[in-house]
Every structure is written in C-alpha cells, then in structure tokens.
Amino acid sequence: MSRNVRVLKCSPDDVFAVIADGWLFPSWVVGASRMREVDEGWPTPGTELHHSFGVWPAVIDDTTSSIEWNPPHRAVLKARGWPIGEALVVVDVKPRGEDTVVRIQEDAVAGPGTLVPKPLLDLALYIRNRETLHRLAYLAEGRAHRSERSTAEREISEGSE
C-alpha cells in the first residue's frame, strides 16, 4: 500500500471542505480530468462522483464512491478507473498545532492493477499522490486565508531566491 504524508498550513476542516466539494475533485486528484456529475448528498457513504480520467482523446468515464465519511478525521473512497481497475483510498487527517497532517494511503483492490508488482505499483502511486497532496494543499490552504505562508507563497519565494 502506497503512503504519502504532508503537513498543511490549515485546519482539518479546511481539508475536508475541499474533499466534500465533489466538483473540485479533478483540481486535486492527479489523473482526474473532468467532472460529469456529483451525486446529491456527496460525500455520504454510497454516493458517487462521476468523473473522467486521462488526457483527450483517451478519456475514460468512471466513478469514485464514498465508503466512509468521518470529518474532520477520515475519508475512505473507492476509485474506479477501468480498464486499469479499482483502488481503495484512505485519507486520514490530524491536527498538529495550528497545522494539519494529511496522510493518503492507496492500494489496487480489483482489476489488472492488482497484478502489477507491489514495489512498482507503490512507487507509481507514491509519485502520483505526492502531487495530489500538493494540489490539496493549494486548495485547503487557500480556503484558510491564514497569515502564515501557504504552499504557493513558499514556492514563489523559493523560486525567486
């Protein structure tokens, strides 16, 4: 199972506000390219996000289901991406002082993705979810409007030095 952890300069509620807005899904999930529909009641367990993944013209329509929703602590999602398969994604969120620690764990649970050797699959998921957490930081920290430097502000200042 691939694991990624990042400290965000926002509250757990800010993180869960982003996840709860299904229309933002392709803004923070690497590989999701567009939203087609968000079930009423998202992210109540059993509801789905209807999204597409890939790059045009190779765009595939599929869904992600909410399995567990326990804000501001934990969300469990089942991401479908056939013909690749399905993955179970667990997002755990914990406050740390004024910051928040977010951990994403992901593993293939159905389809051809389960046949990929674990070390190779974990590496690919780690690289993808590193960027996913980076994007989530932009959105959640942007919601927070905090006086501390956000991920974007830190990157801008590091690039100009």
Rank of each mutant, 00 (worst) to 15 (best):
L115N: 10
S33W: 01
S52C: 14
V18K: 03
A124E: 02
V38Q: 09
N4E: 11
R128N: 13
R36I: 05
V102L: 01
R6P: 03
G159I: 02
A137C: 07
H145P: 00
E155C: 11
V5A: 12
P95A: 15
V93W: 02
G54M: 05
A58F: 13
H145C: 12
G113Q: 02
R130A: 05
H50L: 04
S65D: 06
G111Y: 00
R103W: 00
P119C: 13
P72S: 14
W56H: 07
W56M: 09
W42C: 05
D62R: 03
D92Q: 11
T64Y: 00
L123I: 00
G85C: 06
R34H: 12
V90I: 14
D122H: 05
R154M: 09
S160T: 12
D107T: 07
L49G: 07
E155V: 11
S33R: 02
L139S: 03
V109F: 03
L136E: 05
A17H: 05
T64N: 13
N129Q: 09
T100D: 05
S11L: 14
S27Q: 14
F16T: 04
L8A: 05
P119M: 09
P45C: 09
P112V: 10
R6I: 12
D107W: 00
G31I: 05
D13V: 14
S52N: 10
P12M: 08
K94E: 15
T44P: 05
V76R: 07
N129R: 06
V91F: 03
S66W: 00
I19A: 04
A87M: 04
D13I: 12
A108H: 03
I60K: 11
S2V: 02
I104D: 02
D107K: 10
Y126E: 12
E158K: 13
G31D: 00
I84H: 08
E48W: 00
A124G: 09
L24E: 04
R135W: 09
D21P: 08
M1P: 12
L136V: 10
E153N: 03
C10K: 02
D39I: 11
A140F: 08
I67F: 06
L121Q: 06
